[in-house]
Amino acid sequence: MDFVPLWAVVIDYILGVVMWTLIGRFGMGLFLPENTSFFFMRFFVQATDPLIRLFRPITPGFLDARFVPLFVAWFFYMARFYLMPWLLGYSVMGMLSFPLEGEIARGLANILYKFQN
């Protein structure tokens, strides 16, 4: 990640955390109602409700309420995949390669490598 400016990594991490939080809300929403007393679901709902309200004007009316967090997460994915490389001046879209997920994958690989040896 030495070639990626720090500001780009920070922005990508923020967008990535928001995206994965929305995906988490969608996933948990498949099994739990929004008004459950389960701590994690309450966190996902409270953390993502402002974004869902912000995106309400462009959310299709026919979309089931359970899928709205996934729809909003898609915008954050698109920003990470297309906007970030464009801001960094890459001529090919998608070249940023998601630093957040890359760091997580490297960390998991290191952990698994240590367990094997």
Rank of each mutant, 00 (worst) to 15 (best):
F40L: 15
S37G: 12
A65I: 11
A65Y: 01
S37N: 14
P57D: 02
L51G: 02
D64H: 15
D64G: 06
D49C: 02
F55E: 03
T36L: 06
L70A: 12
I52A: 05
N35M: 12
A47C: 05
R53N: 10
N35P: 04
R53G: 04
T48F: 01
R56V: 08
M41D: 01
V45S: 03
T48I: 03
P60G: 03
D64E: 09
P60Y: 02
R42N: 10
R42C: 03
Q46F: 11
R53H: 07
D64K: 12
F55W: 07
L51P: 02
R56Q: 12
S37D: 15
F55C: 08
L32D: 05
F38V: 14
L30D: 02
F31W: 15
F67M: 12
L32G: 02
F44L: 14
V68G: 01
T48W: 05
P50W: 04
R56H: 12
L30T: 04
R42M: 09
L51W: 06
T36F: 06
I52H: 02
A47S: 08
F40M: 15
R66H: 10
L51C: 09
T36Q: 04
T48S: 10
E34D: 11
F62T: 15
F55V: 07
N35I: 08
T36G: 09
P50L: 06
L54G: 06
V45Y: 00
A47Y: 01
P33M: 00
L70W: 05
F31M: 14
F67W: 15
G61Q: 15
T59G: 06
P69M: 01
I58K: 00
G61V: 10
F67G: 05
D49F: 01
F31C: 11
L30R: 05
D64V: 14
F67D: 09
I52C: 04
T48E: 01
F31I: 12
P60F: 03
V45A: 04
P60N: 02
M41W: 02
P57K: 06
L70V: 01
F62W: 15
F40E: 07
